[in-house]
Design a protein around this nucleic acid. Structure first.
Length: 572
RNA sequence: GCACCUGUAGCUCAGCAGGAUAGAGCACAGGAUUCCUAAUCCUGGUGUCGCAGGUUCGAAUCCUGCCAGGUGCACCA
């Protein structure tokens, strides 16, 4: 469609030039619009703004453009209509179908992939849970959004490095160490390490309200950890090991992989060189006994580099990590998938890098997203007010399992289990990715687990039907000659054709909801087609053509779901 | 207090490099199954696009101000 727009724009530029107007092609392309209603065609060009130049009503100009195209016709265009001030181009569905088929013949299942990012190295830092805390539904967002971006950039040909920047360093570990020393229970820990650590963490904050000296003790404990004291180090290793093992299970369920899992602790040895560098550049100042970089000139509060007790902070480690990664991977872009509440933090350390002379700092992006919130406010790990992701996934799988028993009782137990897992987890992933990530998600079990309408299972169901048809229509040969006999076929082909453009939009905005919504629309187009057009039992030409439409729908649904990181079952 | 984000149908949300009567899902009512899985499809919308100005041939979309909710603003991450 992009190429077609280019060609249309070129013709319009020629036409306008003949009439003494000299616009850029890009300018024309920007004016193209996708009509709200399909009856107005596929590409619309509004001509209102030229009324003054031509000293004619828009309709007349539209007619002139139409005439121009009719004397220089494009085979991709089936029909041109002038309505009001618009020139509406109706793209030939036959041409769309043939282009799609051609593409699939050439590229197979990779038909939607491109190489626009070939040769580029892109780092996506995502998930990054705190290993002192359990994996809550709050961590789901960074995980699935990051995974989506990793998939997307890969599909566009980039060399992508997905990094799980595990939160395994910081004062929180001081807290955990103190709490473990005071109230830790070896037996409880062995039984369920993560839950036990969580209860210690919550208890720490509760007790610290009564006894604020605990906070100081925690900071001291972290300082000892950072300076390499044996006892603290051992405890830390123990906490870390068990947490990572636990997280691994969750990642497996979510079908998420990382190219690198490096904790913040990894950078603790690289802090001094950062401090020295900032010192050299004359950016470092002592303020209230701490080391800071002042950012007054950029309308930001100072960025804290070292606490007054000499231990490091989040920002320091992020700066060290960025420099390290630039040296190691020489990335073209680095994206941080982290909640929007940390926006200031990112602006600050991006700026510190920039004024330190690292020009590549402008290739850093904070991919922010809204947080999960309850009716009565924010989730808080500290207060123990948190929903565990595992519980959400289990509940979702449970619900699916029940529905499956009802709808398809003939499935074997083992197969049903596998499919319920795929559908249940997929439903949660889809639910998270279907809305603009910038918005907060109001958590309610009802909504997260809602399986009606705009949901993962809805898409999966269409996919399953496609598979069913292909299984039952083995005898039918695929047909590559367009043979439209019903309007729903035309609408389906047009929807299928949109896919590449949607990928482009999702890429430019780094947002998954464009793809999620597209998949819902495609599914709707398909089910309408499904209800109106049978594949099996029609004459040869019709059956063959329709079989190919089903095949195209199948691979498009699969590809879109793959980008989102959602698996689809062959039956359900 | 300052900065940023959000505000669209009863609810959850699309649409916002300006463009045609502002669209989905849920909920509610009715209908469709001799036929590729009815987890489906079809029919039914009188919405102050938070409010008020401005720019424009044209504003949900851009600008300004205000209101509401959220987030952040030095030793947490």
């Amino acid at each position: 469609m992009l190429e077609l727009r280019n060609r249309l724009a070129e013709s319009i530029v020629d036409f306008l030039k003949e009439n003494g107007i000299d616009p850029e092609r890009e300018e024309i392309i920007a004016q193209f619009k996708k009509p709200d209603n399909i009856k107005f065609g596929d590409i619309a060009f509004p001509v209102f703004r030229y009324a003054k130049d031509f000293k004619l009503p828009p309709v007349n100009i539209g007619k002139m453009i139409k005439d121009y195209f009719e004397s220089n016709p494009l085979h991709e265009i089936e029909k041109i209509e002038v309505v009001g001030g618009y020139v509406n181009f109706h793209v030939s569905p036959e041409w769309m179908f043939e282009s799609l088929v051609q593409r699939v013949k050439e590229r197979g299942d990779d038909f939607f992939k491109t190489d626009i990012l070939k040769g580029k190295t892109i780092i996506v830092e995502f998930s990054s849970p705190n290993i002192a805390k359990p994996f809550s539904i709050g961590h789901l967002r960074s995980t699935v959004i990051g995974n989506f971006l990793r998939n997307l950039f890969k599909a566009l040909g980039a060399n992508v490095i997905g990094i799980n920047h595990v939160g395994d360093w910081g004062t929180q570990f001081g807290k955990l160490i103190i709490a473990y020393k005071l109230w830790g229970d070896e037996k409880e820990f062995k039984k369920d390490p993560v839950k036990h650590m969580f209860s210690l963490y919550v208890r720490f904050h509760k007790e610290a309200e009564k006894d604020p000296s605990l906070e100081d003790k925690a900071r001291e404990a972290f300082a000892r950890l950072e300076s390499g004291e044996e006892l603290e180090r051992e405890l830390w290793k123990k906490f870390r090991k068990h947490s990572l093992k636990e997280f691994e299970k969750t990642y497996k369920r979510l079908n998420v992989e990382f190219d690198q899992v490096i904790g913040e602790s990894f950078y603790s040895g690289k802090i001094e060189s950062v401090v020295n560098l900032l010192e050299q550049k004359g950016l470092l100042e002592v303020s209230e006994n701490a080391l800071v970089v002042k950012l007054d000139d950029y309308n930001m509060p100072p960025c804290l580099i070292k606490k007054s007790d000499g231990s490091t902070l989040y920002a320091t480690r992020d700066i060290a990590a960025a420099i390290y990664r630039k040296e190691r991977f020489n990335f073209d872009k680095m994206l941080y998938v982290v909640g929007s509440e940390q926006r200031l933090h990112f602006r600050q350390f991006f700026k510190v890098l920039e004024i330190s002379g690292f020009e590549w700092a402008r290739n850093l992006e904070h991919i922010e997203f809204g947080l999960y919130r309850f009716k009565d406010g924010k989730m808080s790990t500290r207060k123990g007010k948190v929903i565990f992701l595992e519980d959400v996934l289990d509940e979702s799988v449970d619900r699916i399992r029940k529905i499956m028993k009802e709808k398809n009782p003939d499935l074997k137990e083992k197969e049903r289990e596998e499919i319920a897992e795929v559908l249940g987890v997929g439903a949660i992933i889809f639910n998270d990715l279907k809305n603009d990530r910038i918005k907060d998600v109001h958590f309610s079990w009802e909504e997260v687990l809602n399986l009606d309408g705009d949901s993962g299972p809805y898409i999966a169901y269409s996919y399953v039907r496609c598979n069913g048809i292909l299984r039952n229509a083995r005898e039918v040969e695929e047909g590559f000659v367009p043979n439209f006999t019903h309007n729903s076929e035309v609408l389906l082909v047009k929807k299928l054709f949109e896919f590449s453009e949607i990928i482009d939009i999702a890429y430019r905005n780094r947002k998954s909801h464009f793809i999620a919504n597209y998949l819902l629309e495609l599914t709707r187009s398909f089910t309408t087609f499904y209800h109106n057009c049978r594949v099996i039992g029609e004459n040869k030409e019709v059956s063959s053509f329709r079989k190919t439409l089903v095949k195209l729908t199948l691979i498009t649904l699969k590809s879109g779901a793959e980008l989102l990181g959602m698996r689809l079952p062959d039956r359900m």
